[in-house]
Design a protein around this nucleic acid. Sequence first.
DNA 1: TGGCAATATGGGACTCAGTCTCATTTTTGT
DNA 2: ACAAAAATGAGACTGAGTCCCATATTGCCA
Lengths: 217, 217
Amino acid sequence: MSTDTPEGESSLPLRERKKQRTRRALADAALTLFSERGFDRVTLEELTAHAEIGRSTFFRYYGTKEDVAMAAEGELWEAYTAHFSRQAGQGPALDALRRALTDAIVSMPEGWDQRFLRTRRLAAGTPVLHDHSTLSSMKVQKRLVEILEERLHVDSRDDVRLRLLGEFALSAWRCGARNWVAGRGYNARRGHGGTATLARRVDEAFDAIPGSLQLTL
Amino acid sequence: MSTDTPEGESSLPLRERKKQRTRRALADAALTLFSERGFDRVTLEELTAHAEIGRSTFFRYYGTKEDVAMAAEGELWEAYTAHFSRQAGQGPALDALRRALTDAIVSMPEGWDQRFLRTRRLAAGTPVLHDHSTLSSMKVQKRLVEILEERLHVDSRDDVRLRLLGEFALSAWRCGARNWVAGRGYNARRGHGGTATLARRVDEAFDAIPGSLQLTL
DNA sequence: TGGCAATATGGGACTCAGTCTCATTTTTGT
DNA sequence: ACAAAAATGAGACTGAGTCCCATATTGCCA
């Protein structure tokens, strides 16, 4: 192994590759260990031992113990904001937010859906992780609003609608993702069904927005 | 001091009064100390010394350091859920959610608005507290949806609209509260303006919901 | 190819929130 | 006044997150 660029992945400065591998090893070990024995019954000491790195090095890869557990979700948020900020487009802003999200979902790499599903199941039984997940979505929302502000040349402090829009998009995400994990609806035999199904669940949630405003007691 | 029930407040089992006073002393000391020197530059040791209780007793009053800092906000959430669950009413569910919230706001006790304002300002400069606040609102949302489920005999897992409704109500809250603290809009000379103004800001945010869905790029 | 600079790593000490146990004090009800 | 019940506080303990510094690894260029 010397000069060639072996196979798949990206041929980065070679140094970056190792980092990516370590990063991934940590996320995988976290998902496995936390799922097996419970988030707070595994110390960072054990986790880093599994990934064969020192404890202090861990914090150069992930900011907190929660972050490494929810790594798969974080990857989606990276993709979402990237898609949305490069997406041109006209028309209803909510549609743009929706499209960027579903696009990001379906273009996640092979196997991501499985990792994400395991992540959500872990979070479902671990309050502190569920909170972390909720908070992440709120932070993405904030970034999206900032992008919208730039694009529309409007200050969200002057126009509540911008912030509401961000709220709605992520509300739909939370609802859609929840239903996907629960495996409800249409072709729902044994949970999920890959990124395409997840995207559909999110679409359904977006579709339900107008109707929900009419709901009466 | 023996047999009479001095003045204001409620004449509770007498033991409860002391507890309430301690609880409040902690919250006040927290707001003062954290605002003066910064949330993470004050240890619980110092805080409890100020309130003249032992460190271990603190955790019988508040679950975390964040909780005591955001006590005023927590009181609003107690009031909101109480109002909403006892509120009868027909008509659009979103209106019911809105009314219960504004009712709760205007019926907060004297001086609450000042404490709440200080709380929000503290949170604005302390990421971990801002997160805590966001998360609290999401938890209230969850409780509201549970109440709605009972009342409508619908499982929110089968009907996305319920959850979206909860999301929208708290979205409006977050936007309205934000504008209130910023002191924008109408009669906004130097910030806020009491609970009535806060309630108005929240109303404005609710009003903006339908329009925001139409926003175009 | 050798060697230097930049960068990644790991050891280990330290702070502090949060948990737990147990002995002591305070309150309440009778 | 006394016994049961509840609140308190001291102190030990765990583990996450921060920081510093010495060492190793990699990239770069002469």
